[in-house]
Amino acid sequence: MLSIKDLHVSVAGKPIVNGIDLEIKAGEVHAIMGPNGSGKSTLAHVLAGRSGYEVTRGTVTYMGKDLLALSPDERAHEGVFLAFQYPVEIPGVNNIYMLKAGLNAIRRHHGEEELDAVDFLSLVREKMKIVDMDESLMSRSVNEGFSGGEKKRNEIFQMAVLEPRLAVLDETDSGLDIDALKIVAGGVNKLRNKDRAIILVTHYQRLLDYIVPDKVHVLAHGRIQRTGDKSLALELEKHGYGWIESKAGAA
């Protein structure tokens, strides 16, 4: 579904991603771990099409298309979803109103009929259950005054409504308390299916106890240094990133 080849990205003239290769098939869950500043969010943003990131080399193919040629909203229409590490607040814009606008734009793109308020509301009610979302958050402005955990929950709720093909979850676990982590992880598991690929960016192997990945990649200095299965995350937990760094240095 997603094929990243030799991807190089610079931000403000500074190389951040230095040759990433990654293949993800439909139905798979890949975890990406790595130290602060290693380029995880940069990769996520490049996939979602955020401006300010210059791809200096390499290709990204998504469902057979050149992903980098699409605008951010076109990517969303094609099923790319990013759960933000830091969801932004939009004062005065109703949370589910924005979501409805997004969903209907996506539906239009697929030649489907737009949902009216009534149908949308019943969809929302159903999806809220997936992450046990508080009803009062629905009528508030987008992320405004949401607690850190509520923002993260809201991201997964949006994912549940928009039903993407490729979801990139950037540190969705950070800021969640233990109970919330279980709930949100449970929500993500419910959203796993054979047609959907998920990239999980995380610092904590604990998340991977709940959402068991097919593969784990360790990113450092803008490159994937190691790839393995869930046990890699456990090893990492034991030895820290220094272990990868020294290996990378040795290689």
Partner: peptide
């Protein structure tokens, strides 16, 4: 804010008017 809306599938023009209306 714009990117957040775009990422949810909303066009740039609609995103601006959404944000302005919120304002």
């Amino acid at each position: 804010q714009l990117f957040y809306c775009l990422q949810r599938g909303i066009s740039r023009e609609d995103a601006v008017s959404l944000i302005v209306n919120g304002f």
